[in-house]
């Protein structure tokens, strides 16, 4: 099983929170906001692919 995706998402989350702190300290509020948005979108893409795989698996296991 690819447990890597969990670590990937958690890594992205922690990295973004650190970068966000740095940007906020540097006084770049808009960039910090954009970074948050980009992080959410990237993780959402990964989760959407995972959801698609889940639906395919359910379909094949239950024979829908």
């Amino acid at each position: 099983m690819d447990i890597n995706i969990i670590f990937k998402i958690a890594g992205i989350g922690i990295l973004i929170s650190v970068l966000n702190m740095v940007l906020k300290q540097a006084g770049k509020e808009e960039q910090a906001q954009m970074l948050t948005l980009v992080g959410v979108v990237v993780v959402l893409m990964m989760v959407i692919q995972l959801i698609q795989r889940l639906f395919m698996d359910v379909r094949s296991v239950f024979g829908l």
Partner: peptide, 21 residues
């Protein structure tokens, strides 16, 4: 990041669900 926590929880849940399936 509370907004990423929701996505992370979803991803973990899906992974466990696929393993159960």
């Amino acid at each position: 990041r509370p907004e990423l926590a929701v996505l992370f929880g979803t991803a973990v849940g899906i992974l466990l669900f696929i393993m159960v399936l």
